[in-house]
Amino acid sequence: MKIHVGPVAVPELEEAVRAAGAELGSAEEASALVWFGAGPERFAEFAHSGIEWVQLPAAGIESWVESGALRGGIRFTSAAGTYAETVAEHTLALMLAGTRQLHTMARAGRWEQPEGIRSLFGATVGILGAGGIGRALIRLLAPFGVRVLAVNRSGKPVDGADRTWAADDAEGVRELLTGSDFVVVAAPATAATAKLVDAGALALMKPDAWLVNVARGSLVDTDALVDALAAGRLGGAALDVTDPEPLPAGHPLFSEPRALVSPHTANPKSLLIPALARRVEENTRRYLAGEPLLGEVDPAAGY
């Protein structure tokens, strides 16, 4: 079995394929693709009847779902879970920056103690989409003695969470929103999660609560968030992803004193490639052995 890395060849990913015991080959002769360097619009150039498996480089695959590139007869795997620890680390950094008002002090330009400095210890943290990132975040939050409320697709209890509800449990989601000091958005971007946090959801949150989005910008209604922050109806928002993205210069979120924006850096390329290489090596080994693959995509669910 030969595996092709492309459209952009990455030495670390090619080495991961070889380390797993597979042989590299051209796209035409390969039975599997490790996709990197382009979106689904180029997939038709590489797909052929002999392709059995495609490893995608990202955890979020909404562009592949929307394009219709997820063809029947081909197994697709995402990088779901691959970057969980890195993104969870960034999430914790955003939460700590918010509680300590570091963003306010960084902008102040003068020696002045801001109001609203809080502690993360003993807080209640709600996680919308408690998958790999959520579980990694729960582990990082353990020393702070927080209470964790979680929502996931199945409603199956999440380790470390005090309460878990299914995503379609409206009362459970409402309880999470009303009871959390921090609401962390970490769910996949699908048609069902578009604008998951809208004006109604924001209105349910505590007036001093923080919204933290490390998933995709489409899960939050940006206009509603801007309005809530400007009106003082929310303690703050820490966003690593936005809608639109990139956020255009002059956007209100950049000047909003209650907002902290990082430019989609929770998983920078310097950390992405090594983590992806580990996933490629493991899934290639599993592919050769005929074992279940990590992160296999469910086209119907959209992730």
Rank of each mutant, 00 (worst) to 15 (best):
A69V: 09
A69C: 09
A69G: 05
L70S: 01
L70G: 00
G72S: 14
G72I: 02
G72V: 00
G73P: 13
I74N: 03
I74W: 00
I74L: 10
I74C: 09
R75V: 11
R75Q: 10
R75N: 05
F76C: 05
T77G: 05
T77F: 03
A79P: 07
A79H: 01
A80S: 10
A80N: 04
A80Q: 04
G81P: 07
Y83F: 15
Y83E: 10
A84M: 09
A84H: 10
E85P: 13
T86H: 13
A88L: 00
A88G: 03
H90S: 13
H90R: 13
H90I: 09
T91N: 10
T91F: 03
T91C: 15
L92Q: 12
L92Y: 12
A93H: 13
A93D: 13
A93L: 15
A93E: 15
A93Y: 12
L94Q: 15
L94I: 14
M95I: 11
M95W: 03
M95N: 04
M95H: 02
L96N: 12
L96S: 11
L96G: 11
A97P: 04
A97S: 13
A97N: 12
G98H: 06
G98L: 07
G98F: 04
G98V: 00
T99I: 00
T99Y: 00
T99R: 01
R100N: 09
R100F: 02
Q101I: 05
Q101T: 03
L102S: 05
L102H: 04
H103F: 12
H103Y: 13
T104C: 09
T104R: 14
M105V: 14
M105Q: 13
M105E: 12
M105L: 14
A106N: 14
A106L: 14
R107A: 14
A108R: 08
A108E: 09
G109I: 04
G109N: 10
G109D: 11
G109A: 10
G109K: 01
R110E: 11
E112L: 13
P114E: 12
E115P: 01
I117C: 04
I117F: 00
R118Q: 15
L120I: 14
L120P: 03
L120D: 01
F121P: 01
F121M: 08
G122R: 00
A123C: 13
A123S: 15
T124N: 03
V125N: 02
G126I: 08
G126D: 02
I127P: 10
I127K: 03
L128C: 09
G129K: 09
G129C: 09
G132C: 04
G132A: 03
G134C: 02
A136S: 15
A136V: 14
L137S: 11
L137H: 10
I138N: 12
I138G: 10
R139P: 02
L140I: 06
L140N: 05
L141D: 13
L141H: 11
L141T: 10
A142K: 11
A142L: 07
P143E: 07
P143M: 06
G145Q: 08
G145L: 01
V146G: 13
V146L: 15
R147E: 15
R147V: 07
V148D: 08
L149Y: 04
L149F: 07
